[in-house]
Amino acid sequence: MNPPSDEAYLLAALRMAAGTDPVPPGVAADARAAYALRLPGGVTAVPLPRATGRPGARSGARREPPARPPGGAGERGAPPGRPRAGENEPRLVSFAGGGLAIDVEITVCDGHLDVAGQVRPALPAGSRIEIRTPRLSEVRFPAGSGEFAATGLPHGWLSVACHRPGQATVATRWLCVRP
């Protein structure tokens, strides 16, 4: 039930006035904590649209599959988001921005996410890749291939940031991935 905008806003105004559905404390706390996720001077890499037709086919200049994290299984190419029942295959999203192409492959496991990916072109020496969630980050120093991986991340919001010496940080748009 997704009402058009004016209907949604009128219903929202009624809901606010009724006062029967306060904002849960966790929602407000997460909103306040989002301030710490800013990357001043950074560039946002936006997701590339998926190609239509062949299942899993993608637009963009993907050449090599990203590294697969330990425990990763199944085929590539399913989109991110909530999996269907029994589905445990990785979902692939490609981003572009700031002169970089960032492929991110996410596997939803029971209780956690595994993430693998690749950044192109190769990052200069001294670069680091930060796999970010609102509450923890994993830092990787990619080899020449630009591949990275992290396992055991919590379900929910995820972004990958590429920190390059002397250049703007490039971070993917935040994605929400839940079982």
Binding site: P3, A8, A12, L14, R15, V27, D30, A31
Partner: peptide, 23 residues
């Protein structure tokens, strides 16, 4: 924050999905 929550809920989302929309 309150208005954003009300808008998400007015779109028919349950509390978990509304929390994701607001965040």
């Amino acid at each position: 924050g309150h208005r954003m929550w009300a808008v998400a809920r007015a779109c028919g989302l349950d509390t978990a999905d509304a929390a994701d929309a607001v965040q």
